Computed example of a mutant assay.
Amino acid sequence: MMTNLFSVFDPSTSMFNISFNWMSTFIGLLFIPSMFWIIPSRYNFLWNSIIMKLHKEFKILMNSTHNGSTLMFISLFSIILFNNFLGLFPYIFTSTSHMVMTLSLALPLWLAFMIYGWLNNTQHMFIHLVPQGTPSALMSFMVCIETISNMIRPGTLAIRLTANMIAGHLLMTLLGNTGASLINYLMIFLIIVQIMLLMLECAVAIIQSYVFTVLSTLYSSEVT
């Protein structure tokens, strides 16, 4: 039962033993050519305003004076947001509901932050292992706790995004499978519930991409 239940999240479209499901990750590139139109549309102005607000917020969180330092996190937000939204369309594979995708985003970022921090700001990294005001008797214990919490950061980032995307899709799948056995007035109620869940999933798609990016930004600010 569990294998059939979660099979909707597994790659299944293939040709010549090559999986094409992951090609959905690059569908977001189809939105880029509109940026090169002679007359920008309202979508361009809306997206530019979102990018500028994210740039200002990430710059405050990072406390960095390097120009363009927020570009990486805005790009990360964009790719997660596109993939989250594309997964809401029927018959489109949701790549962000798999640990392969989310861990591939979180782990390289975390490794880059750690390598940069320990090579360039070693003393600063040691200071972060012991919070300010910690009693002397608890310092060794706090170092162990902070080290473990630091080590599991990429896992928590990846699992948080994957679990939130799977939960909504799984609930909508379960409710949709029960539609064939319902009577007419219950079917209308089911459709209303499905629409409300779809609106909730749209909000979750935005919130989770924002949370993933903000947490990555905060982790980067700790190594500088």
Rank of each mutant, 00 (worst) to 15 (best):
T65C: 06
I127D: 13
A158S: 05
I152C: 06
Y116T: 04
M165P: 01
A163R: 08
T213L: 09
N121E: 04
P90C: 09
H55V: 07
F9A: 08
L119R: 12
N63D: 15
L71C: 03
M151N: 09
E222F: 03
F77M: 05
L81C: 11
L200M: 11
V211N: 07
N164Q: 06
H128W: 05
K59A: 12
S12G: 15
L157S: 09
L109F: 14
G133P: 06
T102G: 00
W37C: 09
F26H: 02
I92H: 04
I38S: 00
P90D: 12
P131V: 04
L138H: 11
S140V: 10
I79W: 10
G133F: 02
M52L: 15
S220P: 07
F85C: 12
I60L: 08
Y219E: 13
F212R: 01
L182N: 02
H169T: 04
N121R: 14
N164C: 10
N150H: 12
T162R: 08
L218T: 08
M23F: 08
L71M: 14
T147I: 12
M165G: 00
N83Q: 10
K59C: 04
S49E: 10
G179E: 07
N83Y: 06
F16A: 07
N48F: 06
G28Y: 11
T134G: 00
L81D: 08
Y210N: 00
S95K: 01
L171M: 11
V193W: 11
L198R: 07
M35R: 02
T147F: 04
A203Y: 01
Q132Y: 04
I27H: 00
P90R: 09
T213Y: 01
S69L: 06
I191E: 11
T3P: 09
S136Y: 14
W110R: 08
M114G: 10
I38Y: 13
L29S: 01
I74D: 00
S181Y: 15
L111H: 09
L171E: 08
S49N: 13
S149F: 14
F58R: 05
L218Q: 02
S221G: 02
A203T: 03
M99K: 05
L81W: 05
N177P: 09
L111V: 12
I159T: 07
M52E: 15
L182G: 04
N184G: 07
S209R: 05
L54V: 08
S12W: 06
I39R: 07
M196H: 11
V211M: 13
L129E: 03
A167K: 04
E146M: 15
A112W: 13
N83P: 14
C202M: 10
T13R: 05
K59E: 14
R153G: 03
M196G: 05
I79V: 12
I207F: 06
G133E: 05
N67E: 13
G168I: 14
S149P: 06
H128P: 14
M165C: 07
W118R: 13
L171P: 10
I188A: 06
Y43F: 15
S216H: 00
M139S: 12
I207L: 10
F26A: 02
M172T: 06
F141P: 00
T217D: 02
T162S: 01
N120P: 03
F212S: 04
F85D: 09
N83I: 03
M99G: 15
L29K: 00
A137N: 10
N84C: 05
T156C: 14
A158Y: 03
F189G: 03
G133Q: 13
M125W: 12
S181Q: 13
H128S: 15
E146V: 02
T134A: 01
A106R: 07
L218E: 11
I195Q: 13
